[in-house]
Amino acid sequence: MEKKTGTWAVKVGLAQMLKGGVIMDVTNAEQAKIAEDAGACAVMALERVPADIRKDGGVARMSDPQIILDIMDAVTIPVMAKARIGHFVEAQLLEALGVDYVDESEVLTPADEENHIDKNQFNVPFVCGCRNLGEALRRISEGAAMIRTKGEAGTGDVVEAVRHARSVLGEIRRLQNMRPEELYHTAKELQAPYELVREVAETGKLPVVNFAAGGIATPADAALMMQLGVEGVFVGSGIFKSSDPAKRAKAIVMATTHFNDPKILADVSRGLGEPMSGIAVRTMAEAEQLAVRGW
């Protein structure tokens, strides 16, 4: 019987398998091994973590394929990699390399300030960032098979991750209380396709898996996002910019599983050393914020 690859079911299916897990940013094979040994459910292969992208300035692009291939060789868990918003050729390269998921990411400098990648054209699945429900549904209509709230990457400040998760999940709850005829106008307000708006109103959830990202630096941060209702977390700079990455990585994995058990959370949070120092998002100029990228 016929085998079908690159279908919506297998794209969304991989994200289903990542749920309840931690996806960690890594910049080389050694860090990838540390992440896998700590229990990461996937790694994001990068040249620089967001905190360094922020510090170095300039244009941030897709990583050198050699770095991505080295990381793919080092671990058995799925490997994701980032393409610039709208840069469909970077995405083609990543698909050709065989990465398991492409993150069309605001952490890199956007290549197109109007159009995102037409993700339906690819066999490799995509994850995209969002700040609110409308943005999430626009990305899903373009073919994103997984969503992550953006937060503010490279800050170690969880406040934006909380804001974006509350926004997405709150808007879903609002849709659930609407009368059917109100959904048409709401779709217009959200700038999202009506069919997806109606589906969310009926099911009470996004049609794809929803993780949190951007500013998660401690086990308690991860558990906070899980208790708010996301299905897993991305941790970028928070691990490898801390004083004891292996220990912190493992603690964040345990906290993501046992997010509802304060005793375990207290236990795993002990003696982790210094977290990344971070930047309070409140003190940043809007031009320095990455989350506003994406349309």
């Binding site: 016929e2 991989l14 799925p78 398991d100």
Partner: peptide
């Protein structure tokens, strides 16, 4: 293989079909 090789297909599985002709739709992810 990797994710791009993930696939779905129909399988005949006598143990669960009990004579039911409908195959089982199987989703394989990595």
């Amino acid at each position: 293989g990797r994710q791009v090789d993930s696939f779905e297909t129909d399988l005949n599985i006598p143990a669960i079909q009990n004579g039911d002709p409908a195959p089982f739709h199987a989703i394989f992810i990595r």
